[in-house]
């Protein structure tokens, strides 16, 4: 656990920088805003205590807020997502439960499990975020379209990142 700490800190900064410098600047048809920084919450180990999960989500959201001029918006959505995570993990647990020493990754639990896990969390996050952003329901369908297209791009990135993890683990 402890020896994985530097890796988590590094990925925190890497994802934040990637988000604010690259993905916040993607302007594809005006509807697509992938928010890939939530991968950090996906990656956290199963044993992460609940309070730490929430606090990390809050810090992560607030950091993104700091750089995109939206105090409270990302932190609200990210904390909500982190709150859902433990119940979701319990709901989609495999028959013989989670094994010690494994992490929530495609490599350890397969594509189907990882797909369920990330799709639900990404949707929770993006729906909250985009509806807070527009602040009312009069743009319902354009917001819905933004949510769907952005979620797809976020998930594509998340799965590409998983392929890298997969290779790294195999080499060991």
């Amino acid at each position: 656990m402890i020896n994985r700490l530097p890796g988590y800190i590094l990925s925190f900064f890497l994802l934040v920088l990637l988000q604010i410098l690259v993905f916040n600047n993607i302007q594809f048809s005006g509807y697509v805003n992938p928010y890939v920084y939530i991968l950090f919450i996906f990656m956290l180990p199963f044993e992460t205590p609940g309070y730490l999960l929430l606090i990390l989500a809050f810090i992560l959201g607030l950091t993104i807020d700091l750089f995109s001029n939206t105090p409270g918006m990302h932190s609200f959505a990210t904390v909500l997502m982190a709150f859902v995570r433990p119940s979701l993990l319990r709901a989609i647990a495999p028959r013989d439960d989670y094994q010690p020493g494994t992490t929530p990754s495609m490599h350890d639990y397969g594509f189907g499990w990882y797909f369920k896990y990330t799709v639900v969390l990404t949707l929770v996050h993006h729906i909250t975020l985009f509806f807070i952003e527009v602040y009312d329901f009069s743009y319902f369908f354009s917001t819905l379209w933004r949510i769907i297209s952005s979620s797809i791009f976020t998930l594509i990135f998340v799965f590409i990142a998983q392929l890298f993890v997969f290779k790294k683990n195999k080499r060991r």
Binding site: L54, F58, P71, G72, M73, S75, F76, V79
Partner: peptide, 20 residues
């Protein structure tokens, strides 16, 4: 404590959001 911490953090976020 998990639920309470969740509520506290969401209230803080909401406060920032509204204040904004």
């Amino acid at each position: 404590h998990f639920t309470f911490l969740f509520l506290i953090l969401e209230i803080v976020s909401f406060y920032l959001l509204v204040n904004f």
